[in-house]
Amino acid sequence: SRHTFEINGERWTVEGVSEELKEILRAAERASNDEAERLLRLALKLI
């Protein structure tokens, strides 16, 4: 499935992501810059 999210003013669209990964991306959208970066690094390990 496709998911579009915005982090630090940048929009991203990813396809074929699991519900778990979507949850991480949604958390990154709400997080501070440092926390968002940490969550994105974690998410990339899952891809």
Rank of each mutant, 00 (worst) to 15 (best):
V17G: 09
G16R: 06
N8E: 04
R38T: 07
R41P: 00
A36Q: 10
W12V: 09
R2L: 14
W12S: 00
I47A: 07
I7L: 04
A27K: 12
E37G: 08
L40W: 08
R26H: 13
R38M: 11
R26V: 09
F5Q: 01
V17D: 06
E29V: 06
G16Q: 07
S18A: 06
I24V: 07
L42F: 10
R41A: 11
S18N: 09
K45T: 12
L21W: 04
V14G: 02
E37N: 12
G9C: 09
S1E: 14
H3G: 06
I47S: 04
T13S: 07
H3P: 04
R41Y: 10
L42H: 07
R38P: 02
E29G: 06
R41V: 08
L42R: 05
T13M: 07
G16P: 05
R2K: 15
G9H: 02
V14W: 07
R11K: 14
D34M: 11
I24L: 13
D34I: 12
L44N: 02
I47Q: 03
K45C: 11
G16K: 06
I47E: 01
L39F: 06
A31K: 03
I24K: 02
E6T: 13
R11G: 04
E35N: 04
L21F: 06
G16A: 11
R2D: 08
R38W: 10
L44G: 02
H3F: 15
R30G: 12
L42K: 07
E6G: 00
L39C: 04
R30Y: 09
L42G: 03
E29I: 05
L44A: 04
L25D: 00
T13Q: 06
A36Y: 06
E29D: 04
T13C: 13
E6M: 14
E29F: 05
K22D: 06
T4C: 15
N33P: 15
L40H: 02
I24G: 00
F5I: 06
R11P: 06
R2I: 14
T13N: 04
N33K: 15
R30N: 12
A43L: 10
W12C: 05
A31T: 05
E35H: 05
K22G: 09
S18F: 05
R38N: 07
I47T: 03
L44E: 03
R30Q: 12
E23M: 13
E37C: 14
E23I: 10
V14R: 01
E20V: 10
S1R: 11
E37R: 12
V14T: 04
L46A: 06
E23A: 14
D34F: 10
V14S: 02
A31D: 02
L40D: 00
K22H: 14
E15T: 12
E10N: 08
E6V: 15
N33L: 12
A28T: 02
L44H: 05
G9F: 03
L39W: 07
W12Y: 14
E29T: 08
I47C: 13
R11A: 09
G16S: 09
L39S: 00
A31C: 05
S32V: 09
R30S: 11
D34P: 13
S1M: 13
L42I: 10
L46C: 09
A36L: 11
H3T: 08
E19A: 08
R38V: 11
A43E: 00
L21N: 02
G9Y: 03
E20Q: 11
R41K: 12
E10L: 12
E29M: 08
E29W: 03
R11D: 03
R38I: 10
R30W: 08
R11E: 10
A28W: 09
V17A: 15
T4E: 09
S1L: 13
A27S: 09
N33Y: 15
E23T: 12
N33H: 15
K45E: 11
E19W: 08
R30M: 14
E15S: 11
V14Q: 02
T13E: 08
N33T: 14
A36G: 06
A43P: 00
I7D: 01
R11H: 11
A36F: 06
E35L: 08
L25P: 00
D34H: 12
E10V: 15
F5R: 01
H3V: 14
N8L: 15
T13H: 09
L21H: 04
A28Y: 08
L39N: 00
R26P: 00
E23Q: 12
A31G: 05
A36T: 04
A43N: 00
H3E: 15
L25S: 00
L40C: 05
L40R: 04
E35G: 03
L44F: 06
E37Y: 13
R38D: 06
E19H: 08
L40F: 08
S32A: 10
E19T: 08
L39R: 01
G16D: 12
E6P: 02
W12G: 00
L44S: 03
H3L: 15
N8H: 05
A27W: 10
S18P: 07
L25W: 03
A28M: 07
E35T: 06
R26N: 08
E20A: 11
H3N: 08
L44I: 12
E29Y: 05
E6A: 02
G16W: 11
S1D: 14
A27M: 13
A31Y: 03
G16I: 12
E15P: 05
L25V: 02
G9Q: 02
L44V: 07
R26G: 07
V14Y: 07
E20I: 12
T4D: 06
R11N: 08
R11F: 15
R38G: 04
K22R: 14
E10G: 04
L39I: 05
R11C: 15
V17P: 13
E15M: 10
I47V: 06
I7E: 01
K22A: 13
N33W: 15
E37V: 12
S1G: 14
K45L: 12
R26C: 06
L25I: 05
R41N: 09
N8R: 03
E29K: 05
E23S: 12
E35K: 05
R26D: 06
S32N: 10
E19Y: 07
K22L: 15
A43K: 01
I47G: 03
E20N: 08
S32R: 07
F5S: 01
H3M: 14
T4Q: 08
E6Q: 07
I24M: 09
T4P: 03
A27R: 14
H3W: 15
I47M: 13
L39K: 01
E29H: 06
F5E: 00
N33Q: 14
L40A: 02
L40V: 05
A27G: 05
E29R: 04
R26L: 14
L25M: 07
L44M: 10
I24S: 01
E19M: 07
E35V: 08
S32F: 07
I7V: 07
R2A: 12
H3Y: 15
A31Q: 04
R41Q: 10
L40G: 01
